[in-house]
Each structure stands twice: as structure tokens, then as C-alpha cells.
Simulated scan of single mutants.
Amino acid sequence: MRVAIAGAGNVGRSIARELIANGHQVLLIEKDRSAIHRGAVPGAMWLEADACELSSLEEAELDRYDVAIAATGDDKANLVHSLLAKTEFGVPRTVGRVNHPGNEWMFDDQWGVDVSVSTPRLMSALVGEAVSTGDLVRLLTFTKSTTHLSEIRLPIGSRFIGRRIRDIELPGDAVLVALIRDGAPLPPERDRAFEASDELLFLVTQDSEPELAELFDPEGDAVED
């Protein structure tokens, strides 16, 4: 997969290294010459240019890329880059970094953003995930829908421990997509039994989220088997 990343700061470089490690081709676009450290991202292509300028993106041949990631520290630049990538170059998938929570509402399909990643919201969610057990924590919101990626960690003594996935009736539109056990991801096979401290990852709509939280509420011991 070919991925173009606007912004070669710490965030952009970290994303690039991860993508390259997974076999993808990466182009880093950075207008600040002092921020270009080619040796910091072995295997990446670099372009010293303004990612918000049409001529720069034409030089980058952005229309040949599968994904455009706007990862600068400037929300205005991220919005402009995403809009150009989507409307002028037809990039199939765009991802926009949100730096300031007050701007999050703008990162939608009207600005060409398919997926927005809010750094403050993600940090808050990760803090919640780190300190909470038994509570449903929202990790990620998808821009074009009301679907969220949410996580819950089963506490010791949970009534779900030992029960198989097939025996649990999830509410509404909730879908169990993976388990994390001892740091390793596991597929949600129907015959797999839950264990204490399992981290459960769900795709769930906003409407079904309260029901899912209630189902796994540690205080809800009266739930039917």
C-alpha cells in the first residue's frame, strides 16, 4: 500500500516507521527543511514541499497513493491537505489528525476526512483504559458513522469468566471484534471462553453503547444467563 504523510514531526515519523515495518511504501511531505531527518525513517521517501499547495501534491503524484495522512500540528493544514487529497487527487482513504478538541467537528467528509484521530481524545481514552476495569471505554470514533471502537476489561470475579462467547447475547448493533489476553490479540471464536483481565474490543453504535455498558456492568449481577 502506498501512503503519503503530510508532516514529518514526531507523529508523522512514528507513523511512517510503523507503516514501513509492515511492508508499506511511505512518502513524507514536509515544508520545514529543519524537520527533514532522512536517517530517522529508513526506507521512507521524502519531499520538501508544502502539503497544502496543489503544485506540491502534483509533484508528489498524490493521485497514485492509496492513503493520505494529514499529521501536522496545525489543524487548518490538516483539513486543507485532506480536502485536496480527496477532491483533487481522488485518494481513496484520508486520515486527519485533530490537535485541538474544539476543531474536531470540522474533521468530516465535507472536508475530505474519512477518519479523524483526535490526539487529546485518544490520550484521554487511553488514560481511562489504563485505570478502569469493568467500565466500557470509548477508544475511537469513526467519522462517517455513529460507530465507535470501545473496550472493556473483565475484572476478577466477573460473571462472564468461564462463559463462552456464543453464550453471550450482545445488545443491538454491538460486535465483539477481538480479545486481548496477556498482551496478545485473539479472534472472537464462538467456543472461546472468557478469562479474568481479558480486554474485549467492540464495534458498537452510539445507540447500543449504553446497553453494552450495562450488560458488562460489574454491579449488574442480576443479568439473566
Results as ranks from 00 to 15, higher is better:
residue 142 F to R: 11
residue 78 N to H: 08
residue 136 L to V: 11
residue 125 A to Q: 03
residue 28 L to C: 08
residue 60 A to L: 02
residue 134 G to V: 01
residue 210 P to E: 00
residue 223 V to L: 02
residue 126 L to H: 10
residue 47 L to M: 08
residue 71 A to Q: 03
residue 179 L to H: 03
residue 210 P to Y: 04
residue 80 V to I: 13
residue 23 G to L: 04
residue 162 G to F: 00
residue 71 A to L: 09
residue 65 Y to T: 14
residue 193 A to F: 01
residue 185 P to D: 14
residue 116 S to L: 04
residue 62 L to W: 07
residue 108 D to H: 06
residue 120 P to Y: 07
residue 153 R to H: 08
residue 103 N to C: 03
residue 96 G to C: 13
residue 77 A to C: 07
residue 172 G to Y: 09
residue 88 E to M: 15
residue 24 H to A: 12
residue 52 C to I: 02
residue 124 S to G: 11
residue 175 V to Q: 00
residue 153 R to C: 01
residue 3 V to K: 12
residue 29 I to T: 10
residue 66 D to P: 07
residue 169 E to Q: 14
residue 54 L to C: 12
residue 184 A to P: 12
residue 121 R to A: 05
residue 3 V to Y: 06
residue 29 I to D: 06
residue 79 L to P: 04
residue 183 G to D: 13
residue 128 G to P: 07
residue 65 Y to F: 15
residue 141 T to F: 14
residue 170 L to A: 02
residue 211 E to H: 03
residue 31 K to H: 09
residue 160 F to K: 04
residue 31 K to R: 14
residue 50 D to Y: 05
residue 111 W to K: 13
residue 44 A to K: 08
residue 48 E to M: 06
residue 37 H to C: 07
residue 57 L to K: 10
residue 128 G to S: 08
residue 18 E to I: 11
residue 202 F to A: 02
residue 20 I to T: 03
residue 146 T to P: 05
residue 83 L to G: 13
residue 210 P to K: 02
residue 7 G to F: 06
residue 167 D to S: 14
residue 106 M to T: 03
residue 129 E to M: 03
residue 39 G to M: 09
residue 8 A to I: 00
residue 189 E to W: 15
residue 87 T to M: 10
residue 139 L to E: 07
residue 107 F to M: 06
residue 139 L to K: 06
residue 5 I to L: 05
residue 147 T to E: 12
residue 138 R to Q: 01
residue 94 T to M: 09
residue 19 L to W: 07
residue 171 P to K: 05
residue 41 V to S: 00
residue 67 V to K: 12
residue 82 S to I: 04
residue 126 L to T: 07
residue 154 L to E: 00
residue 12 G to Q: 00
residue 2 R to H: 13
residue 166 R to Q: 14
residue 115 V to P: 08
residue 197 S to N: 15
residue 211 E to K: 08
residue 134 G to H: 01
residue 29 I to F: 05
residue 122 L to A: 11
residue 108 D to G: 10
residue 164 R to A: 10
residue 200 L to G: 00
residue 131 V to I: 15
residue 190 R to P: 11
residue 17 R to L: 12
